[in-house]
Design a protein around this nucleic acid. Structure first.
Length: 572
DNA sequence: GCCGTTTTCGGCCCGACTGTTTTCAGTCG
């Protein structure tokens, strides 16, 4: 069993224990261990084999044993036994919003033992008669069941932002609103988010709550109180609003931005200073220690300011303590991108349209990299069309009519055996070559790793495109030993792309910090298939920031002259 | 079940909101 599957089993054990009425801290221990496992980036196999699982936070002797058993045999006696003693329907029912272990048990006692039985019972008014339930509970259960799938799914950061921004603007315009911000994972720029969090500073929350809970497009109001409201928007995404006093805003913003793990560490620090940190302030601190902003709060606790993107408990607090946080790259540092498609393959905009839009972005150059012939589904170019495009770009550059310099590139297929789609003599005509995997995505890890490394060792390749081919929320990443590929790229002087398309964000930000420390260089691209797609540079830079990247580690922050030099030197 | 500048037991975040009940348990984040 792999890491992900094992984490899922641990999570399920937590649910099962909860249903049994076990000690809540024991339940939490399993959840913590599960999350810790998912967050681990290193070589999991090695960790298990060298019996170093207990080095993971929240994994002790007992859970380590269970993980090992699952890893080695794919089974766990303890888990099987637990499952046997709990009807499967109860596990499903605990997933329903509003139903926890106690309520599921109460339902079970009344012989309601599956989602289907729950639905029927709620419709027939049976649920409303159970002690602890009522008419409203029954209706809420029916609502939750009707939208079960939509309520559970996550949303791409990009899509969530297009929903959140108008709401934020609306909040800012309301009378009495002193401050308004987006918080939560949306503010941390996580690639997908579960809900939208808003925070407002105002002395009178009532009219703000009223505005929020009567927004157009609200499917259901989940909660609406003095300081906190939750709604479900059309499409199923949840939006939460908290209103605090202006003096509390900095604390509250930090608290609601998270991550949870980051906050726990922050509270630890406060405790060790003899204070108690909450969303409302720093209790016990002397009056002079009253923080007004997040910057002040971090300073009081002995840290330099930590950008929201870094608040994932991945070493940022240790670095902030030593004043060694990176100076994160910004969108304005970008001078052009190198992975762009045109109507020559599967793009929707012409070469000139792509160039004009890039100029509008304020960029100095744009690399054109249409698909190669094997990407038949994407109208990949054959040799003749490719060379014609190279000629067209050469002429456009010579005429200086575009106001922006174009590089001739190619997104060249890495074939199943690791060979590139064109021979060297063709690729030699280009300024650079991006190698990407588009077919045979389901190869096993060994074959895929060997395939990609073979391409990386090919002197014609400049940049490795979207490492895993994942499509967030749609397609799983292909199995590849990322560490080995990173090492091969460094050894062969190759760049890895951070594909900034909101669906991809590949290579994953979690791998960049360590990789860049080893010396790997990054190219942030948009994989634009339309002139409007240059905007995706924002999501690419977000991911780079989450990966601790600085300007100097990203090649497409250099000037045109330097880029020409860089690409030329890498061709030899 | 985990963890420990209080080394092996005792603590582990806690406040907001709902819906029920009749003063608060359950759920959520």
């Amino acid at each position: 069993m792999d890491k992900k599957e094992i984490a899922k089993v641990l999570e399920e054990i937590a649910d099962l224990l909860e249903l049994k009425g076990e000690n809540p801290f024991k339940v939490r221990a399993y959840r913590t261990a599960s999350r810790s496992l998912l967050n681990f980036e290193g070589n999991f196999k090695k960790l298990v084999e060298e019996e170093k699982l207990d080095e993971l936070e929240g994994v002790g002797e007992h859970i380590a044993e269970k993980i090992t058993e699952l890893f080695e045999t794919g089974k766990l006696a303890y888990y099987e036994k637990l499952k046997k003693s709990t009807p499967p329907g109860m596990l499903q029912m605990i997933q329903v919003h509003g139903l926890g272990p106690k309520k599921v048990k109460a339902l079970h006692k009344k012989k309601i033992r599956s989602i289907e039985e729950l639905k029927t019972a709620a419709e027939k008014g049976k649920v409303a008669k159970i002690r602890g339930f009522g008419k409203k509970s029954a209706q809420n259960i029916l609502d939750s069941l009707a939208h079960r799938e939509a309520y559970q799914k996550r949303t791409l950061w990009w899509d969530a932002m297009t929903i959140a921004e108008p709401i934020l603007e609306g909040l800012k315009k309301l009378k009495g609103v002193q401050k308004a911000e987006i918080a939560g994972s949306l503010r941390r720029k996580l690639e997908t988010v579960g809900d939208l969090d808003f925070l407002v500073a105002a002395s009178n929350p009532k009219p703000i709550m009223k505005w929020f809970t009567s927004l157009p497009g609200i499917q259901r109001v989940l909660a609406s109180g003095e300081t906190k409201s939750s709604v479900k928007l059309e499409g199923g995404i949840q939006a939460d609003l908290r209103v605090v006093k202006e003096s509390e805003f900095g604390y509250a913003l930090c608290y609601f931005t998270g991550s949870k793990e980051h906050n726990i560490k922050l509270r630890d620090r406060a405790l060790s200073c003899g204070w108690s940190l909450s969303e409302y302030g720093l209790a016990g601190a002397r009056k002079t220690k009253k923080a007004a902003t997040e910057e002040d709060l971090y300073k009081i606790l002995g840290f330099s300011y930590i950008e929201p993107e870094l608040r994932e408990d991945r070493g940022e607090l240790q670095a902030a303590e030593k004043k060694k946080l990176p100076h994160l790259i910004e969108v304005k540092d970008i001078r052009g991108t190198l992975h762009n498609h045109t109507t020559s393959s599967d793009g929707k905009s012409t070469l000139r349209e792509m160039a004009a839009a890039a100029k509008k972005m304020g960029w100095e150059y744009l690399g054109i990299s249409d698909h190669s012939k094997s990407s038949f589904q994407a109208n990949g170019m054959d040799e003749k069309r490719l060379l014609a495009q190279v000629e067209e770009i050469r002429k456009l550059n010579a005429s200086k009519s575009l106001g922006i310099y174009l590089f001739s590139g190619l997104e060249c297929d890495i074939l199943a055996d690791g060979k590139l789609d064109f021979p060297k003599k063709i690729l030699d005509h280009l300024d650079y070559v991006i190698g990407s995997v588009h077919a045979s995505l389901t190869q096993n890890e060994k074959a895929m790793t060997r395939r990609i490394i073979k391409a990386v060792e090919n002197p014609s390749l400049t940049i490795l495109g979207h490492l895993t081919g994942r499509l967030l929320l749609r397609r799983e990443p292909s199995r590849v030993d990322a560490q080995k590929v990173i090492d091969a790229c460094i050894a062969n002087n190759k760049i890895i792309e951070l594909n900034g398309h909101p669906l991809r964000l590949d290579m994953d930000w979690r791998l960049w910090h360590k990789a860049s420390e080893k010396g790997l260089l990054c190219c942030i691209n948009t994989d634009a298939h339309h002139a409007d797609n240059h905007q995706f540079i924002l999501s690419g830079v977000n991911a780079a920031r989450k990966g601790w990247l600085e300007k100097s580690q990203v090649i497409n922050t250099v000037s045109l002259k330097e880029m020409q030099k860089l690409l030329k030197s890498r061709k030899n």
